[in-house]
């Protein structure tokens, strides 16, 4: 209590944390992570594993239709076969690759488009920002599934048009969020300081803004991935998304939906169409769990004293 108040700047008490490499910090955070986050991470890793090693894991080929239609669950066909005699387990495994791959490519493209436009709008402001923002306002006011349906009816349902259409539509949401968080950073004094120093646009974007908007953007990436994944699944389910013979979970539900009526007689046949749907649901739940935890960590969403 009775310290002599000789003031020295270096000794001034500050909340000085120990410095650690990001690896150590990530591991410490992970150890503290709740069960749901762990579960989510494990599930995501499992899906990625299956997607990468699909050809080695699947007992049969993706479009291998050499068996009888609607065969029941058995040793040879763990989940039976579908309406034209393809092994459902194999198609589920290949489906992981196709469905996740396409959704991931779409989300990445959406972030590339939306993110870069958002940065441009936030930094340059003025009329560029106005034009971009108003255009996005209009695009966003058409429900994206409806818009996607309309565009697909014009360009046809190829994988490429699917990816481009969904990515463009989804980039509007990325733009909105990206612009909002970038705006929060742009008004910071350190950005003004960089401008006063005379730094160019490139430096300000790369060094001052981008590192500071990464956390919300990463979380948004998870959420957008879920949304894109569900949209593509819905489109495929409606028959206008990923086209046969490519195995994909949405269309698998559609193809085998009629089996559900037999649930009273053979429960296993009845739940067969639910398997791909469950595969979709479990992955999105897992991603949501991880994003939830990540958001809580980075935005400090908790009761402040």
């Amino acid at each position: 209590m009775s310290e002599s108040e000789g003031y020295s700047a270096a000794a001034e008490v500050g909340a000085v944390r120990m410095r650690r490499s990001w690896r150590e910090r990530a591991w410490i955070e992970l150890k503290k992570a709740p069960f749901t986050a762990w579960l989510g991470l494990v599930i995501i890793l499992a899906y990625v594993f299956v997607a990468i090693f699909a050809p080695w894991l699947a007992p049969y080929g993706e479009a291998d239709a050499q068996f009888g239609a609607y065969e029941p669950w058995s040793g040879a066909h763990v989940f039976g076969t579908d309406q034209i005699g393809r092994d459902i387990l194999s198609r589920l495994i290949y489906g992981a690759r196709n469905t996740i791959g396409i959704a991931l490519a779409t989300t990445l493209l959406a972030f590339l488009i939306g993110g870069s436009l958002a940065l441009v709008a936030a930094i340059s402001r003025g009329w560029i920002d106005q034009v971009l923002s108003r255009a996005v306002d209009v695009l966003i006011s058409i429900p994206s599934l409806i818009f996607a349906l309309m565009l697909l009816s014009i360009y046809g349902s190829t994988t490429l048009s699917l990816i481009v259409i969904i990515a463009v539509l989804d980039s509007t949401r990325v733009f909105r969020l990206g612009r909002a968080v970038a705006m929060n950073v742009v008004v910071m004094d350190y950005v003004e300081a960089a401008r006063l120093r005379g730094e160019g646009l490139g430096w300000i974007m790369r060094r001052e803004i981008l590192p500071n908007i990464m956390p919300p953007l990463v979380a948004e990436f998870g959420l957008r991935f879920c949304f894109v994944f569900l949209t593509i699944a819905a489109l495929s389910f409606l028959g206008v998304g990923i086209q046969p013979p490519t195995a994909d979970w949405g269309s698998m539900v559609r193809e085998n939906a009629s089996l559900i009526q037999f649930a009273q007689f053979d429960l296993r046949a009845g739940i067969t169409p639910l398997l791909p749907a469950a595969a979709i649901a479990i992955l999105t739940i897992a991603v949501n769990f991880v994003v939830d935890w990540f958001l809580m960590k980075t935005s400090g969403l908790r009761d402040e004293p």
Binding site: A9, E12, G14
Partner: peptide, 23 residues
Amino acid sequence: QIELDGSFADRLPGELSGGQKQR
């Protein structure tokens, strides 16, 4: 010159007190 030693060079702003930040 601002009365801080060389070890501060590796710190991030979040690891400084208010007065140190202003320095």
